[in-house]
Nucleic acid binder design. Sequence first.
DNA 1: CTGAAAGCGCTTACAG
DNA 2: CTGAAAGCGCTTACAG
Lengths: 335, 335
Amino acid sequence: MNLRRIAELAGTSHTTVSRALNNSPLVARETRERIVRIAEELGYQINAGARGLSTGVRMTVGLLYSYHPGRQIASFYTAQLMHLMGARLAARGFDMMIEAFDPGLDDLTSVVRMIRQKKADGLLVIGYDISEKLATAITSVTNKCVFVNPAYSPWIHRYPAILIDHRWGGKLAADAFRKRGRRRCAAVAEDDPQFAERVSGFAEEFERDSPEYCGTASQLVLRDGTYETAYALAESRLAELASYDGIFVASDVSAIGVMNALLDNGIPVPDQVGIIGYDDVEWIHYTRPPLTTVHQPKAEVAEAAAAEIVERVFEERTESSTHFYKPELVWRGSV
Amino acid sequence: MNLRRIAELAGTSHTTVSRALNNSPLVARETRERIVRIAEELGYQINAGARGLSTGVRMTVGLLYSYHPGRQIASFYTAQLMHLMGARLAARGFDMMIEAFDPGLDDLTSVVRMIRQKKADGLLVIGYDISEKLATAITSVTNKCVFVNPAYSPWIHRYPAILIDHRWGGKLAADAFRKRGRRRCAAVAEDDPQFAERVSGFAEEFERDSPEYCGTASQLVLRDGTYETAYALAESRLAELASYDGIFVASDVSAIGVMNALLDNGIPVPDQVGIIGYDDVEWIHYTRPPLTTVHQPKAEVAEAAAAEIVERVFEERTESSTHFYKPELVWRGSV
DNA sequence: CTGAAAGCGCTTACAG
DNA sequence: CTGAAAGCGCTTACAG
């Protein structure tokens, strides 16, 4: 089924059918109605590939998510973001093509493949571990690209990006401990710019009223973001951790690792040590105690990313622009 | 950049360039090498839309996942499956376009949109809540469609499908309780064919050795699969649940709901009541006690689905075929 | 082994 | 308001 066939059935040219189906004003109302009715009866929809070849826009964006081989999926947070972005793009008539990429890889050609093959009009790149090298490589191929949740860094302002104000998130955690009267606190995080922001926001806010902030001892740096690593670190530093009033752990999964290590070794949470996580993944309130954590505004991020990439696809803007969103604290039972 | 431009640079016709880049044997080795080098230098890749228009295959499959409005995402299990399927499709040179759909919706036209617009060559449909009506509607539009993890039902054999042997999964749970000497057991599940299989497999295996299987009292039917519903049901039937040796809950999220309700009300798990879940979602071992559960073979399902849809896209087969995969029990600490 | 030509299914400037 | 024609960037049967 194609325009030509519909045209035969409607007794017009395929040119007119094209116009009618695209709501061009250059078609008599009666003609349009007849054509639309026939198309509907046949379940006909315009061939997107042919149209894209002609117009240059394919109404498709590529969603690249950073993925570390060996993990099951980047994270549940990423999965939720994907779902929300898909919905916001669909609302704008765009389809979303997803693909994982390894941010540590040297060969960056696969990352821009969708653009080169003209399968996607633009790219949404999710991941806090985007390097400047990768950002440069992508944007040298296309300026229709938006980075979502990259780590904060001086160079990020040169690229269109949607970021979360993690420094603010860290402050919220410090403020929460203070409100609960927890004065001897420490932070646990991966050694990564994204987490550095969270921790320095936490430390800064904490030190304002000069309570005993114990800082981030070198031993409290996580090698990676897995549950197992956090659990092992906490078990190996049990005495030290048990001596704090509160521990801020810069991601939920790591926070659960720390909390379980304490609980499994008889250190009561929150009675002896309070814990605050970061992310607010969906299942986090299933733990006992349920985790108090910093919520990332996923819905806002998804909407902003979709709006931004669609604007760029239609070339309404090309200059870089950085959007910041503020996280919120969710009180539960771990502090 | 296009074939014509490469042809100019290489001093050949675009026909030859097309052949060279597609590894046609109808090109002299020397000519091919020259063309390939030029293309690589320019980062040129064949325009997938134009090629698809010509060949009829777009090297893209649509992934439709059932989604109930109001939830954040269908499930983490679905998210993991998506990731794995994307990888298995990529290995075959296919891209994956994802879209959520509401399985309760009457208007089914949006479900086949990707096919009608020729954006996708085939469809992978994930969801246990696919109705016969929906299956019929989709397959009347395209036979290049594979249902992944649909509920078991008599009519499902008429369609290509990848299913998990949930009856077997239920048996595994019963066997596990028996091994632990738990004799008074019950099952909790949603009222849905998918879960009915799990529960009847459980009951059948349990009754073989005639221990005291307490069945699924009408009170133990869940209205939906959320944590909250399971928690509320368990709290309202606390005395009854506390009287069992073991409770099989037919999904992990619901199992955590039941387990937390018991724990929060002072009923020790696993000491007094053992609990076995179903799914083995990634975060399930973070709970205390970690949940013993039935693992669904995600990797195998993803590979089978990818293989099956790709075969169908290339029309190597069109008849329906049902694949079954067996789940496995994962011992942890809840029984 | 190579190339000119037709065709895939659209859109749109141009002429009427 | 309508249509014939050219063009988007490929593939492939046909002729050499």
